[in-house]
Design a protein around this nucleic acid. Structure first.
Lengths: 142, 142
DNA sequence: CCGCATCCCGCCGGATACTG
DNA sequence: CAGTATCCGGCGGGATGCGG
């Protein structure tokens, strides 16, 4: 039997509610599952940042990808984009209230990843081992 | 020995811990962000399922993709794969303890997605509106 | 029934170059 | 400084067919 996880009031996620919700869950996971999205959110959690700050501190990200990542987050209402048309120009990004709200469950999942990384690593090694070992002779019962 | 997992204050996932953890967080989000992964996990949350059951009940998924999704989850230790070499063959999948542990934070995030879908939808419309409206005359200060 | 092999296509995201 | 504009390789993932 299942103990459905309840969140606040309402919204227990089971097979049915999942179908009802259409693809919203998969959508969010898809967005948040982007290669750099989580890093951007974590950085903005510590306060508003300029574009160049994000670019500098998120090592390895390209301009283009950072731009599109931020644009996607803006579309879904997780971050705001404030342009200051000075010379040189200045653009500040910050988490919206919605973005702040998302942090809770998202950081919980991230914490889980950190805490349990060893278990996952062990599972991967075990899987590797299984692959390389001689395939056991299979007895077919019929 | 991994009992605690206290999510008091978002459990210290900051820029630093993120770097320490390397890519583990992004890895997990990437895995879980797969198009069908969440559906598989939700179905298996309700108990072990045969391959054909999953295939039938997850509408729209192809054999190949279901197979690879399950294989990935197996690699990371989230599901077990039990082969019964009968004729016709039978393969049962089930969540491991690790997989069960993952459900908590994952379902919390999913619930969030369901609860807040309207806010996201509103944000998207607002963004659309901003795009189509006349670009405001910009005053340049220098 | 289960899943591998193959082919194929769209999209993510990386590199580079160019504007306001 | 903060973007757009292109090009392009890799991969997720869908369709179909075969094999144990």
């Amino acid at each position: 039997m299942v103990t459905p996880v309840t969140f606040k009031k309402s919204a227990e996620v089971t097979e049915e509610t999942c179908r009802e919700a259409g693809m919203t869950i998969a959508e969010l996971l898809g967005r948040v599952g982007g290669k750099w999205t989580i890093f951007v959110i974590i950085m903005l959690s510590e306060g508003p940042r300029r574009f160049s700050e994000l670019k500098r501190d998120i090592e390895g990200i390209s301009q283009k990808v950072l731009t599109s990542t931020l644009r996607d987050l803006e579309k879904d209402g997780f971050v705001t984009r404030k342009v200051t048309p000075s010379i040189p120009p200045r653009v500040d990004y910050a988490l919206t209230e919605l973005g702040q709200d998302l942090r809770g469950p998202l950081m919980a999942l991230s914490s889980w990843a950190v805490v349990n990384r060893n278990r996952v690593a062990a599972a991967r090694e075990a899987f590797e081992a299984r692959q390389t070992e001689e395939p056991a002779k299979i007895a077919y019962f019929r």
